[in-house]
Amino acid sequence: MGWDEVVGQDAAVAAVRAAAERGEGMTHSWLITGPPGSGRSNLAYAFAAALIARDGEDPAAVEAQVHARTHPDLGVLSTERVIIAIEEVRQLVAKSQFSPSSGRYRVMVIEDADRMTERTSNVLLKALEEPPPRTVWILCAPSEADLIPTIRSRVRSLRLRVPTVREVAALLEQRDGVPAAIAETAAREAQSHIGMAHRLATDADARERRSRTLQAALGIRSVGGAVRAAAELHEIAAADAKAITEERDAVEREEALRSLGVEPGGTVPPALRAQLKHLEEDQKRRATRSLRDGLDRILVDLLSLYRDVLVTQLGVGGELVNAAIADGIREAAALGDAPQTLATLDAVAEARTRIEGNVAPLLAIEAALVSAVRVREAQPGGAR
Rank of each mutant, 00 (worst) to 15 (best):
G2R: 14
V6G: 05
V6N: 07
A14G: 00
A15K: 02
A18P: 05
E21M: 03
M26S: 11
I32D: 05
G37Q: 07
S38N: 09
F47I: 00
D55N: 12
G56K: 12
A61M: 10
E63N: 06
Q65M: 03
V66N: 01
T70I: 08
P72E: 04
G75A: 09
V76P: 01
L77V: 10
T79A: 15
T79G: 10
V82S: 15
A85N: 11
V89H: 10
K95V: 03
S96I: 06
Q97L: 09
Y105V: 00
I110W: 00
R119L: 10
S121N: 07
S121Q: 06
L124S: 11
L128I: 12
L128Q: 12
E129L: 15
E130I: 14
P133C: 02
R134H: 09
T135R: 01
T135A: 12
C140G: 08
L147H: 09
I148K: 06
I151K: 10
V155D: 02
V155T: 09
R159Y: 03
R161I: 08
V162R: 15
T164M: 07
Q174L: 03
R175W: 02
G177N: 04
V178L: 00
A180V: 13
A181V: 10
A183P: 05
E184K: 05
T185K: 02
T185H: 03
T185P: 01
A186G: 09
A186C: 08
A187H: 10
Q191D: 11
H193L: 13
H193V: 07
R199I: 09
D203C: 12
A206R: 13
R209F: 06
A217Q: 05
R221T: 15
R228Q: 14
R228F: 04
E235T: 07
E247Q: 05
R248S: 05
A250L: 08
A256Y: 01
A256E: 04
S259M: 10
L260M: 15
V262H: 06
G265A: 06
V268Y: 11
P270C: 14
R273L: 03
R273K: 08
A274C: 02
K277P: 01
E280S: 11
K284S: 14
R286I: 08
R289V: 12
S290G: 13
S290M: 15
L291H: 15
R297K: 15
L299V: 06
D301N: 11
D301Q: 12
V309P: 11
V311R: 13
L314A: 03
G318M: 05
A324D: 12
G336M: 12
A347E: 10
A347H: 12
V348S: 12
E356P: 00
A364C: 12
I365Y: 13
A367E: 15
E377T: 10
P380T: 04
